[in-house]
């Protein structure tokens, strides 16, 4: 009986032919994510990004352009950022993408690698060089990912309370990297 009532409740709200608009979070594609992370984690992050981000235009979006890629036997290569990692169909990867289990899984993987690598983590911490107070450091590091707003005092305290002191910056970096809001340009 209850199930039937629930059924009626559901169907009454979907009685008319479906809406023509689809609202989706406008996530940045792999080029956007690459740009942000390379800026934050430095030139050493290129290798990690090449392996754990750029081949996944399926999840992140970001069409390739094979004519950008220049390969010379003697002189090396350029434009490989725009290589078609998975072949032809990458030409039509989406320009923007949506949150998905697969994207989340891959970001976890990527952020782990970036924050566990000594060189990339060290580079990202350079923004704290002239900052004295611990709370200000947390704010400054936050600004690497979210330059347009601030953490409130209570939010900073929450972070301090929750994260392990021993691996504080590594963990904080990884969590910031994983958070989705900055991935929307």
């Amino acid at each position: 009986m209850i199930k039937i009532i629930i059924m009626i409740f559901i169907f009454s709200s979907s009685a008319i032919s479906a809406n023509s608009l689809m609202f989706q979070p406008r996530m940045g594609n792999k080029y956007y994510v690459n740009s942000v992370l390379e800026n934050i984690y430095g030139p050493e992050s290129k290798i990690i990004l090449q392996k754990a981000l750029l081949p996944y235009s399926d999840f992140f979006g970001g069409p390739c352009d094979p004519y950008e890629v220049v390969l010379s036997k003697k002189k090396g290569s350029s434009g490989t950022l725009y290589k078609c990692f998975n072949g032809m169909p990458d030409l039509r990867s989406h320009m923007i993408s949506q949150p998905s289990t697969l994207r989340t899984m891959q970001m976890k993987n990527l952020c782990q690698k970036l924050s566990q690598d000594q060189k990339t983590l060290k580079f990202s911490l350079k923004v704290l060089n002239n900052v004295k107070e611990f709370k200000d450091k947390i704010q400054s590091y936050y600004h690497s990912f979210y330059p347009w707003d601030n953490l409130s005092n209570s939010e900073i305290e929450n972070i301090i309370k929750t994260l392990n002191k021993k691996y504080f910056w590594k963990t904080y970096s990884e969590l910031l990297c994983q958070s989705e809001r900055w991935q929307i340009p």
Binding site: Y146, E155, N158, I159, R181
Partner: peptide
Amino acid sequence: YSEIIKLLNKNS
């Protein structure tokens, strides 16, 4: 830690 990520996502 997922609470922290929630916090970082603020009011999205």
